[in-house]
């Protein structure tokens, strides 16, 4: 009889634990729903045109459909007046900085991953690099901001102060006009973000390369291909879908980072888009930070609207990553 009660007790315990699991997972889902709903509610004011919504849905005037979204919010510059404020400069700045970051971080990160997985001899130096990369991933992004401030914005003071640059290359009006030091320009921002996402790109690319079966490499080496030919023609093409997925996730991290750029001292209020690689810029997360930190209610609504835009962009990024993961995945060996 005691055996029976023991058994019942264990079954009850099992059921109770399952209930706890379901409870905690629903809490997680609830948190996400609350997060999205509260932001949508606060953000709708500046994002949508209530008159146009009314016209379309209550009166069926489809001609008003394009006016449902307040396009001014996307095409205006930041302003002291919430009604006139927009995120144009921040969106353009974010796109520029992320593009620069991707162009720098992806080749470096994937190159490092290929070296460590395909070429590196098993010695102390390799072990040190490996250990170092794992720990770099845990370094707070604001610390990378300090490195960026000294190494890129001020360039260790080699070229004078960052306010008036000592050297410049290229014609003033060309997009590739570059000043030294970089100051608070696009290049400084892109390079700093590169520091933040490099460990992430390396780690995810290495995992992707490690998942390629050894038999493929051995087949290639056995018929006389060199290690680099094997890596570039066999291993890399097989791993590219997972590498791209990791790269896109790393880029969405770069898109959402504000702390390292804040340390560089990028401006909040800017009334033009960047003209060249060392021109000033601002980014969406920093704009959100600034608006959310102000006391007035309407700026909080602006922040929420900008968050909606940022999240839509990130969800598109993630959608592409999921698509790549499913469509490009082929059976390997």
């Amino acid at each position: 009889m005691s055996a029976l009660s023991m058994r019942t007790r264990r079954i009850v315990k099992n059921r109770a634990f399952l209930a706890l699991c379901l409870l905690s997972t629903s809490v997680t889902i609830l948190i996400l729903a609350l997060l999205i709903m509260s932001i949508m509610l606060q953000g709708s004011h500046f994002l949508f045109n209530s008159e146009a919504i009314n016209a379309v849905f209550a009166h069926g005037e489809l001609s008003q459909l394009t006016k449902v979204i307040r396009w001014e919010f996307l095409t205006n510059f930041a302003s002291r007046f919430p009604q006139k404020a927009g995120i144009y400069a921040a969106v353009i700045g974010s796109i520029w900085v992320c593009a620069i970051c991707a162009l720098l971080a992806l080749p470096l990160g994937i190159g490092t991953a290929i070296y460590l997985e395909e070429f590196a001899p098993k010695n102390r130096l390799t072990a040190l690099i490996d250990f170092n990369i794992r720990n770099l991933a845990g370094v707070p992004s604001i610390v990378y901001g300090i490195l960026g401030l000294t190494a890129f914005t001020r360039m260790f003071g080699f070229f004078g102060s960052d306010k008036n640059s000592a050297l410049s290359f290229g014609p003033e009006d060309a997009w590739w006009h570059i000043q030294l030091p970089f100051g608070q320009g696009l290049l400084a921002g892109g390079l700093t973000l590169m520091l933040v996402v490099l460990p992430i790109v390396i780690i995810s690319s290495r995992e992707a390369l490690r998942a390629v079966p050894a038999s493929l490499r051995q087949a290639s080496l056995a018929i006389g291909a060199t290690p680099w030919q094997t890596a570039s023609f066999i291993t890399l093409p097989a791993a590219i879908p997972s590498i791209l997925t990791g790269a896109i996730l790393a880029m969405s991290r770069a898109m959402g980072e504000a702390a390292p750029l804040l340390v560089l001292g990028i401006p909040v209020f800017i009334a033009n888009t960047p003209d060249n690689l060392t021109d000033n810029f601002t980014v969406l997360p920093f704009q959100i930070f600034n608006w959310a930190g102000r006391p007035q209610e309407s700026f909080h609504q602006l922040a929420a609207s900008a968050i909606v835009v940022l999240l839509v962009v990130l969800i598109c990024f993630n959608g592409v990553a999921v698509y790549l993961r499913h469509k490009l995945r082929r059976p390997m060996a």
């Binding site: 996400l32 606060q42 959402g256 930070f289 968050i307 999240l311």
Partner: peptide, 21 residues
């Protein structure tokens, strides 16, 4: 996907959530 979305939300958004919700 819920967990992946939570992981992908930028930190400044969590700041907004903490302060205003």
């Amino acid at each position: 996907p819920v967990i992946e979305i939570l992981a992908g939300v930028p930190t400044v958004v969590y700041g907004f959530f903490a302060l205003l919700v």
